[in-house]
């Protein structure tokens, strides 16, 4: 196995020079994104450096309590992000609550299952495995949950007259919104299905690339990448189903009335 070549800061500066020259060219060509590019690049440096420090500390301590705290901080940030990506939100904290609960149910249980039953590090919550795994799962589940909830609430808002007319004919709330639930679940699942279908052909997945750069044999990197793809699709799929089920139930009350007043448009 080859050792990892550590990067010095001046070596990163060469890469940074590339970004700076790109910003300069964009400025000359009046593309107008030079500023945003530099701000985003700066954010990358600051945010990743900070998380690097946090992870260094976490790996050094390795206590379950701190890892759980970190995991919940990640979960709440993901929940906030899910809420921010919806145009029509369920009022009363439900937009945040449903997103967070569904990600908790799917991403957390899939992570724990993978750690305990598949990878089996010692201890099972070893942060070197637990945190990256949870991060990947949360990131992807977040995308799926956000897309599906946004699709669900947006289509319920747009098609509220259709839903109500279906109710008038005696359909249950379940039947009246069934088509929208299915299309919401599809839109949450499509990104990961596409990613799995294209993996290795169109692009080398980022995690695998990173692992190979870090010196792993490609065969091991491939195994981990397959594991990650499968867990991500399970996490995203179950998270999407939970979120859409809870969200669509919340759009109706106990008398199966469509409660469009529970949606707030941004």
């Amino acid at each position: 196995m080859t050792g990892v070549i550590d990067l010095a800061w001046w070596q990163l500066a060469i890469a940074a020079a590339l970004v700076l020259s790109l910003a300069g060219c964009m400025q000359l060509a009046r593309v107008g994104l030079g500023g945003s590019l530099l701000v985003a690049a700066a954010r990358t440096v600051v945010q990743l450096s900070l998380i690097g420090l946090v992870l260094e500390a976490l790996f050094a301590v390795g206590a379950l309590g701190w890892i759980v705290l970190m995991a919940f901080a990640m979960l709440l940030l993901a929940g906030r992000e899910v809420m921010a990506r919806q145009k029509y939100r369920l009022v009363g904290g439900w937009a945040f609550g449903i997103g967070t609960v569904s990600m908790f149910v799917s991403a957390f249980s899939v992570t724990v299952l993978t750690l305990v039953a598949v990878i089996g590090p010692d201890p099972w919550y070893s942060p070197q495995y637990a945190i990256p795994l949870l991060g990947m799962l949360l990131g992807n589940t977040m995308t799926g949950v956000a897309l599906s909830l946004d699709r669900l609430t947006e289509s319920a808002w747009r098609e509220r007259a259709v839903i109500e007319h279906r109710l008038m004919l005696g359909q249950t709330w379940h039947e009246a919104i069934g088509e929208m639930r299915r299309s919401a679940m599809r839109s949450g699942m499509i990104p990961i299905i596409n990613a799995m279908a294209a993996a290795g052909i169109v692009s080398l997945p980022g995690m695998m690339t990173g692992q190979i750069l870090a010196g792993s044999p490609p065969a091991v990197a491939v195994e981990y990448q397959i594991l990650i793809m499968f867990t991500i699709s399970a996490g995203t799929g179950f998270g999407t189903m939970v979120a859409v089920s809870m969200g669509s139930r919340r759009l109706f009350d106990a008398r199966e009335r469509l409660r469009i007043d529970r949606l707030d448009s941004r």
Partner: peptide, 16 residues
């Protein structure tokens, strides 16, 4: 509620 609505049957001015 759905059984009730099927029994009393509202036909709105604008159909969907």
């Amino acid at each position: 509620a759905h059984a009730w609505r099927r029994a009393v049957m509202l036909v709105p001015a604008e159909s969907q």
